[in-house]
């Protein structure tokens, strides 16, 4: 058993990483088929020249940045509020969206938007997508910031209040600085779940708000397309850089 276990472990790591490595590798293949014919950047060129793709990527970035900023702010304040007065009903209903299958969250939001449009002069588009993204990424922010707050010492704030700080000052000057690494990690998570989401987004998106995952999905459905491999590689590298940069920033 002692000798078999490492082999087994190596096999699992291969299972986790080899499919993605192969996908990235073949994005540099000059052939359209899955037979290696030589190194080439044609698929990256095709990706670069695809106008619809660029527009979808821009949409995805705008949505991810806006919803990350809002979800991080709202989620951090919410986590602090829950920390001060933990109500199981409140926290339970806020965490519920984490375990709800995405397709259910998506159709429920769609039904709500459609119902609200009877009374509001609006339609599905960037606004509805951003509202949906804030809602589901906020739950992740709550989870991460709450985990950080659980290790915090409430006595610190009490000391600040005893010394004459207002509630706001105690939050702003004592707790918030302590939470910074947690908030950064939460924001990173919020960004990735927003940038990556397909199921909910596709349901609540309108004609002007096609996102990168929606374009990828359509391409993947249509059949083998090396451009998808090229985009995937770019997403890996981009997210990898984002993680490295945020780790650096947290340490600095």
């Amino acid at each position: 058993m002692k000798r078999l276990l490492p082999l087994y472990v190596i096999a699992i790591y291969a299972f986790l990483h080899v499919p993605l490595l192969i996908l990235c590798g073949f994005s540099f293949n000059s052939s359209k088929f899955t037979v290696w014919e030589g190194f080439s950047l044609v698929w990256y060129e095709a990706m670069w020249n695809d106008g619809a793709l660029a527009e979808a990527t821009l949409n995805s970035l705008v949505i991810a940045v806006v919803s990350t900023v809002v979800a991080t702010a709202v989620g951090t304040l919410g986590a602090y509020g829950l920390w001060k007065k933990n109500s199981r009903l409140l926290s339970g209903s806020m965490y519920l969206s984490l375990v709800t299958p995405e397709i259910i969250t998506g159709i429920a939001m769609l039904a709500t938007f459609q119902w609200a449009f009877r009374y509001l002069h609006l339609q599905l588009g960037m606004t509805t997508v951003i509202l949906a993204h804030v809602t589901f990424s906020m739950a992740y922010v709550l989870l991460v910031v709450m985990a950080r707050l659980r290790t915090a010492d409430p006595a610190l704030e009490e000391a600040a209040l005893d010394l004459g700080a207002t509630e706001w000052q105690a939050f702003r000057l004592v707790t918030l600085p302590m939470l910074k690494p947690g908030i950064a990690a939460a924001a990173l998570l919020a960004f990735t779940v927003s940038f990556d989401d397909y199921v909910i987004t596709a349901l609540v998106a309108g004609v002007d708000s096609e996102t990168l995952p929606m374009v990828l999905y359509a391409m993947a459905r249509r059949g083998a397309n090396p451009v998808v491999s090229a985009i995937s590689t770019v997403i890996f590298v981009g997210l990898g850089l984002l993680i490295v940069v945020s780790e650096r920033l947290q340490k600095a």
């Binding site: 509020g81 007065k85 209903s93 806020m94 519920l96 969206s97 259910i104 429920a108 804030v134 809602t135």
Partner: peptide, 26 residues
């Protein structure tokens, strides 16, 4: 009104309007 109520308000509003209400509609 205690400050913590205001801290919870936005998160609660999003949860109520965009998660719990949609579930109610379903």
């Amino acid at each position: 009104m205690r400050l913590r109520a205001f801290f919870l308000l936005p998160a609660w509003a999003f949860t109520l309007l965009l998660f719990l209400a949609p579930m109610g509609i379903i």
